[in-house]
Design a protein around this nucleic acid. Structure first.
Lengths: 214, 214
DNA sequence: ACCTGAACACCGTTCAAGT
DNA sequence: ACCTGAACACCGTTCAAGT
């Protein structure tokens, strides 16, 4: 589960005593926090609970995070990093065809939301909260969006997309995939395939439009 | 603020003592609860706080709601009722033109989200919560969606919308307006006009499509 | 019926303290 | 540096009780 370097912090503590802690509490807090959210929702995220799961005192988290909100911010930032990677890698593995890339991106977006409910929840303020997004997180989040905007620009150059402000066009697409994700549209009730189908259906409609072409 | 009948409950209590309570605690709880959410978010909603604001004991709410979740359900249901009315009235006052109706509906959706943040938050599970939606609330919510689906059907009959499953088409539109609403797209940072512009922009794109018509 | 107080098991967070 | 315990001001909720 731990993907970090295994180098303990500064003092290896020659004794086998038990040590103050494993040495990567910060990362563990994020991972376990995410786990708790995945199991029971953001609402159930409790510093005490995290502490218990890690066999650590109630106050230990405060060594690494100013408060609960700071932990959530870190989780959010980690989420957007993963999110951006998922989008970008989906686009790349879709090959050179523009439409294939567009489809892949949409599907990846919706799939990420489904497969990382906990992260998605925190990332997009699924808490009525002021959205746990600090300066750093916001920058990462914007990078994710830029994958989409880049796609639009390229589509315009290759003649797949109409002229117009690429940012606005990207936002329009963004709204659609995001709406599908949050509304859980096309899922009956837990089906991944149907949701993917619905996403592709929407992607096609988005291209050709809702009004008849004469 | 109180739009209910002023008839006190059963016993008017001839004495001027102060009475057990004003007689419409249930409705007051919903209204004040909504107020608290509007001011500080769902997270800040506290039965105790509501009680305080109403000059009522901590336990009074339990007389009307099984628990906090039940209150939230009632708030949600009330929200969807208002929401459905907003959509329907927007459609009606848009006149007979189909496109005008479609635009009005989209704008009304996004505007509702903006002007009723608190309600919207609770209605669509803006809490990572299991979405406070009981059987009754779900029925009301579905009715709101049907306004949209009806519009699509009529659009198909009048030749404004391509053929296809009206439910899926409506869901596609729904996803878009919902995405705009939750992402707060087109708002810089609190501007109502620009968000409306953006919504209309999306509505047009939705009709004509993103790929060039040759 | 409708309201109340005391009490219980939970929170986040502060503080003084240990190694 | 990193961890800990006790303590404080909050929660939701149960219970026994008042009118």
């Amino acid at each position: 589960m731990f993907t970090l370097s295994t180098t303990k912090s500064k003092q290896p503590k020659t004794s086998g005593k038990k040590a103050y802690h494993h040495g990567h509490l910060r990362q563990s807090l994020i991972e376990v926090g995410l786990q708790v959210i995945a199991e029971n929702g953001v609402r159930a995220l409790t510093l005490r609970e995290i502490g218990n799961r890690l066999g650590v005192s109630r106050m230990a988290p405060y060594r690494h995070f100013k408060d609960k909100g700071a932990l959530l911010c870190a989780i959010t930032a980690a989420g957007f990093t993963k999110f951006g990677e998922a989008l970008e890698s989906a686009r790349i593995s879709a090959g050179p065809n523009w439409e294939a890339q567009a489809d892949a991106l949409g599907v990846a977006y919706v799939r990420f939301a489904r497969e990382n409910k906990a992260h998605f929840e925190v990332m997009f303020g699924g808490g009525g909260e002021p959205q746990y997004l600090d300066r750093e997180g916001a920058a990462i989040a914007e990078r994710s969006f830029n994958v989409l905007e880049t796609l639009v620009r390229e589509g315009q150059q290759s003649g797949h997309v109409i002229a117009g402000n690429p940012t606005l066009l990207a936002q329009m697409i963004w709204a659609t995939v995001h709406g599908i994700s949050t509304l859980g549209l096309g899922s009956t009730p837990c089906d991944d395939a149907t949701q993917q189908d619905f996403t592709l259906y929407c992607a096609r409609l988005l291209r050709t439009g809702l009004s008849p072409r004469e």
